[in-house]
């Protein structure tokens, strides 16, 4: 027990939380925007995988970090746009389309990797670039705090910045209001002249962009190379975080960090002599427990509605 507490209440542990929560924050923000637009999209896994590979290929071929980021973004957004075309224009089933794109992400990235390098596992033979780390001046010298929040990958800071930007987009801009209206009552939006499909496509475009950053972080920050299926369900955990956060940016970020800490804990436990399967299960169990508790809260609010109704009835007597 002592070992556990020592390793959990250490600065390294909290540093790890921020490190592993980064991709989850990105993808949960992507899920949030898309959900606000009224689209149930599960294709984030595919978007992230393609973005991760795109970043590696772009930066390896040109030795230019910017080109790498650009190519990764293009890859990820392309998947989002394919989803938009099929689901919004051709009216195909969103779950099946999302599933297909995730499988495409899993197989397609390996195919591309093999075509370029002759390898099927990792891109370690490609000399791809990494996004640098940043030691924040002044803060890095503060004990404990500095050790936890300084020295992260730039992507990590970008993730937290994204939360603020998403908040502003959703609640403070015209576009955000329109996205929320088409997501909730498309007929109402249409009746006042808002182009419903176009607004939904834009929300997917932004979602695809944010998810791409999450994907590129994995291959250009978290690890220095691409490995097959390296998202291992993060796209889905992001969706869960969005649900747990009730579609509110701050709460969604906190949920993503909660799932991140579960992952960090499982990292700590792996160094102990616990069965590794059990430890790896932890983040997912936390996810399920989180979703169940959300269900409970919702039920309660329903009974509240019923109470209001009863009160109304008695006044109508």
């Amino acid at each position: 027990m002592d070992v556990i507490f020592k390793s959990i209440f250490s600065t390294v542990f909290f540093y790890t939380i921020l490190r592993v929560a980064t991709p989850l924050i990105f993808v949960s923000m992507a899920a949030l925007i898309v959900r606000k637009g009224g689209i149930m999209c599960i294709a984030f896994e595919g978007m992230m995988l393609f973005a991760a590979l795109g970043g590696v290929i772009g930066s390896a071929l040109t030795q230019n970090l910017f080109v790498g980021l650009l190519l990764g973004t293009i890859f990820g957004v392309t998947i989002a746009m394919i989803f938009a075309y099929f689901v919004l224009v051709l009216q195909s089933n969103n779950v099946l389309t999302g599933l297909a794109l995730n499988i495409l992400g899993s197989g397609g990235t390996v195919f591309l990797l093999f075509a370029l390098t002759g390898e099927k596992g990792t891109s370690s033979s490609l000399r791809s670039l990494q996004v640098p780390h940043w030691n924040i001046p002044i803060i890095k010298d503060i004990p404990i705090l500095g050790e936890i929040i300084s020295g992260h990958n730039l992507f990590t800071y970008l993730a937290f910045l994204t939360v603020i930007l998403v908040y502003i987009l959703v609640y403070k801009t015209r576009l955000g209001l329109r996205i929320r209206s088409v997501g909730e009552n498309p007929q109402a939006a249409e009746s006042v002249g808002i182009k419903v499909i176009r607004t939904k496509v834009i929300s997917l475009l932004i979602g695809g962009l944010i998810a791409s950053f999450g994907g590129m972080y994995m291959s250009m920050g978290y690890l220095p190379f691409f490995t097959r299926d390296m998202m291992s369900g993060r796209g889905f955990i992001g969706i869960a975080a969005q649900n747990l956060g009730g579609g509110i940016p701050l709460n969604t970020m906190l949920s993503a960090m909660l799932f991140g800490s579960a992952e960090a804990v499982s990292n700590v436990f792996q160094s102990l002599r616990l069965p590794s399967e059990f430890v790896q299960m932890l983040p997912y169990i936390v996810t399920i427990v989180g979703l169940i508790s959300i269900g409970g809260v919702k039920k309660e609010s329903k009974s509240k509605i019923k109470r209001i109704k009863e009160i109304k009835e008695s006044t109508h007597e």
Binding site: T173, R174, L175, G176, R178, A188, A189, V192, G193, I194
Partner: peptide, 12 residues
């Protein structure tokens, strides 16, 4: 105001 939102520079 939906559809005719007040505000500048895309902000609402």
């Amino acid at each position: 105001v939906l559809g005719v939102e007040p505000g500048k520079y895309g902000m609402f």
